[in-house]
């Protein structure tokens, strides 16, 4: 075994004057100028006609616009009302009040989590969730059953909802987008889900808002799922 020298280090051998000359500046590497080819292009000039990388911008996504600005106090009230509604939606999920959450939807209400942001129709599309109120009732019945085995471990969620931007407002219908972050505890592990909500809200004759469509685009919807989702996000 080599011992680490504890005394003075040994002198580095002198490379002599040739070494000094070797270090003299002869070649200057400069960036390719003008139309000259880069190294890679010189052997593969077209660099192969291939599609843009999946991570860059494979899908053309809509340019986001700022939400409608409240100019009157009545408009500000609508903004606040919608915000409170979205917070309530998330809190009902986090507090496991399934029926109260389902009751937020109107009779034709749909909860939809597509796989990809390009999808536009909830029916006939491969989806993560695609549920009307009857299907919601089945899911609620499942997790409420005493022998829903996968519900036995400690399980909690926590949603944050923000970036609430009104897209259109009329007396009967409001379109609003927002962003969410959900942390989920299951056994002793925490998972993260995040993404965009798009709500179509209907104002009924009673003046109350109801959900016609809750569209949930998760930013990690196409990633590998470590276990599955048992309840709506």
């Amino acid at each position: 075994m080599n011992k680490i020298p504890s005394s003075a280090p040994q002198a580095i051998p002198n490379a002599g004057p040739d070494f000094e000359r070797l270090l003299g500046q002869e070649v200057v590497i400069e960036a390719t100028q003008g139309s000259a080819l880069t190294g890679a292009q010189s052997i593969e000039p077209d660099h192969s006609p291939r599609a843009s990388q999946a991570g860059s911008s494979a899908q053309v996504r809509q340019l986001p616009r700022a939400g409608i600005l409240s100019r009157t106090s009545a408009e500000a009230d609508v903004q606040r009302e919608v915000e409170q509604f979205l917070y309530l939606q998330a809190e009902l999920l986090d507090s496991k009040h399934w029926q109260a959450w389902i009751d937020l939807f109107d009779a034709q209400g749909v909860y939809w989590m597509p796989v990809m942001p390009e999808q536009i129709e909830w029916e006939g599309s491969p989806s993560i969730f695609a549920e009307d109120k009857l299907m919601m009732e089945i899911r609620k019945g499942r997790v409420s059953h005493p022998n829903a085995w996968s519900q036995a471990p400690m399980w909690e969620t926590n949603h944050l909802v923000s970036h609430v931007a009104l897209e259109s407002v009329s007396d009967t219908e409001i379109c609003v987008r927002s962003r969410f972050h959900m942390m989920e505890l299951r056994r002793d592990s925490v998972r993260h889900f995040g993404g965009r909500y798009q709500h179509t809200l209907i104002r009924g004759n009673d003046g109350a808002l109801r959900i016609r469509l809750q569209r949930v685009d998760m930013f990690n919807g196409q990633a590998s799922f470590d276990y599955v989702l048992q309840i709506w996000v």
Partner: peptide
């Protein structure tokens, strides 16, 4: 596919647990 095989499956949730 959506009800049984999606990542929000109402069936495989209990299989995976088993």
């Amino acid at each position: 596919y959506n009800l049984v095989n999606s990542p929000a499956t109402m069936i495989n949730a209990d299989d995976l647990e088993n």
